[in-house]
Design a protein around this nucleic acid. Structure first.
Lengths: 344, 344
DNA sequence: TTGTATGCGTTATCAA
DNA sequence: TTGATAACGCATACAA
């Protein structure tokens, strides 16, 4: 039987449709026996309630939407998987929507909110610098995951590591290894999000250790291109090598670090012997790479779970928006060693 | 204004709701001027039609569902992105659903079909060996993407490379380099899908070139684990190294190839000097890896687009299910060289 | 070319 | 504890 409806079930059980609805939705005011019988019948009939009808009636959909900006960074894939799993656990649908680099994630969010009526939103990636008034048009709960704007409104819900601190940690580690000329691959100049924070962490560490900050060691991604990708890491390093010298290179993502390694290799520079390379994120690929990539591991599973939990709690009204910060872990691996002293 | 409906627009324009509906849905029987005016008003009011109501009325949702089995293989991510993009182009929603290794993708498909009423389905990954009768319960069009069962029903729609042929190509290439002891990392023994086909291609090539097939060179993935992942490549190679010797290793995915490289490295075997390594898929990560990984490039974008096109055509009734085969490309890269003659 | 009225499958309100 | 019935927002058959 192709298209059973709630009516068919009702008829089959000799009850009214509202009783069937109650049975399905765990309403309290129903006779346990009736309920049992109805659920039984439903199971046997392999009837599945029509989602659209439910959502129409409910005026919202039992779903959350996840907006992902930037696909070159495979880091998000793990997060998305985690979020999707949490949704399944909560019996929510997960609407996935990619946002192109040049698109405005907030516009898309606004649109999807009206169209699909999800109960909540997760923003992944992108630099999040929207005017407050525009953000307020978003009338449903949302969580920024692994995003944190430099000047972020405190009232936004967000889950992430402390990018400034973690980046400081990494830079400090490189400095303590003895590096002084540390190049960095970072987000476009305009970035106000994690890219900026990581750059600031880098600068602060240099400053604290009395190492002059030099613009020529900073390579900014191209705003139009896919950010944090293998290719951008490769290209930025190529450019860098033409202009300057350094004993360590800090790429602000693992994928970029691997791209960087190839550029170094093509320039005849061996990693880590002649140049140390560090990444950020802690992805599998960096663990298996040779040399394995020193990195800051973000606790992806925890972040995914916390993001989902926070969002669901906000949807239930059990929580107000607030910010959760997880500790990153500095993974010292093969790609970083003390510098060979060279003269410049 | 938070919740505009079609009525509000109708009122605003001084027309009936059906006229508004016609304007939105490109119906022919409408005065171009009226239509223009209505669309104008809609744009100004930032009204977005309620999807659930539409879908309810239509009895199906303007959506396709994509079922992805196996998340360790990042190859699928690119495919999913491509599919999602095509959906956006066609103004379809894309429902993404991950399927765990031990779950039955067909059961999930059957369920989602009833619940969300998508107009079509895409299956990614998984070995597809379901009884014909059960498949026939699926009453909407579906396409198997980058899957092909060894004994697949001809009437299934499928888009992929010819895994047998491509695998043959790769093995032949390794043989022509001079390798005779070629280990292979392959799907679990029970697999009846691309894993089996790739293994068969390998066997056939060996046979054609008079090289004896040896079970000890075949390392089967664990059925419970995440397939085609870095980790499985790593583990399988570790095991292999304990049991036997070989001059080339053919991993049936790029991710596994990279995992294998690490296991070889830990065993003190350098790639490619002492052991060649080849992959399959043609992912970015293999291009940037050092040494870059020889592989069979699957034309992901083309496959994604063809999958979507075929599915949409089937939905429109313009096409019957059929199978599309794309040519893979053997990318000869740094990870494979002629063998150093050793004695065994 | 247009408007009115009906129904899609649910959930929620109300009266029984 | 139940059942009839009215929405939910839209698309469409039918009448105008």
């Amino acid at each position: 039987m192709g298209n059973m409806t709630i009516k068919d079930i009702a008829k089959k059980c000799g009850v009214g449709v509202s009783t069937v609805s109650r049975a399905m939705n765990n309403h309290p005011d129903i006779n346990p026996e009736t309920k049992e019988k109805i659920l039984q019948t439903i199971a046997e009939s392999n009837y599945v309630p029509n989602n659209s009808a439910r959502n129409l009636k409910r005026t919202d959909a039992k779903a959350i939407a996840v907006l992902v900006k930037g696909i070159g960074n495979t880091f998000f894939n793990d997060l998305v998987s985690g979020l999707e799993r949490e949704c399944q656990r909560m019996n929510y649908s997960c609407i996935l929507q990619h946002v192109e680099e040049q698109e405005d994630e907030l516009d898309i969010a606004l649109h999807i909110t009206k169209e699909k009526k999800p109960r909540g939103l997760v923003f992944l990636g992108g630099s999040f610098s929207h005017p407050r008034e525009k953000m307020e048009q978003l009338e449903i709960p949302y969580v920024l995951s692994t995003i944190r704007a430099a000047d972020m409104e405190e009232k936004y819900a967000a889950v992430s590591v402390d990018d400034f601190k973690e980046s400081y940690k990494m830079t400090e580690y490189l400095i303590n290894l003895g590096h002084e000329r540390i190049a960095i691959l970072t987000a476009p100049k305009e970035d106000k999000s994690i890219g900026k924070l990581r750059l600031l962490g880098y600068r602060k560490a240099l400053q604290d250790y009395g190492i002059p900050y030099s613009e020529e060691l900073v390579s900014y991604m191209n705003a139009e291109e896919d950010r944090y990708s293998f290719r951008s890491g490769y290209k930025l390093t190529k450019q860098l090598l033409q202009d300057t010298e350094f004993t360590a290179l800090y790429a602000t993502s693992d994928t970029m670090a691997i791209g960087a390694c190839r550029a170094l290799k093509e320039a005849g520079i061996s990693v880590p012997a002649q140049c140390s390379v560090a990444g950020f994120d802690g992805m599998d690929t960096g663990e298996f790479y040779i040399p394995s990539i020193t990195t800051i591991r973000q606790p992806v599973e925890k972040i995914a779970k916390a993001t989902a939990d926070l969002l669901f709690d906000m949807i239930k009204g059990k929580e107000k928006p607030h910010q959760l910060v997880f500790e990153g872990e500095l993974l010292k691996r093969e790609s970083t060693v003390p510098p060979v002293k060279r003269k410049f």
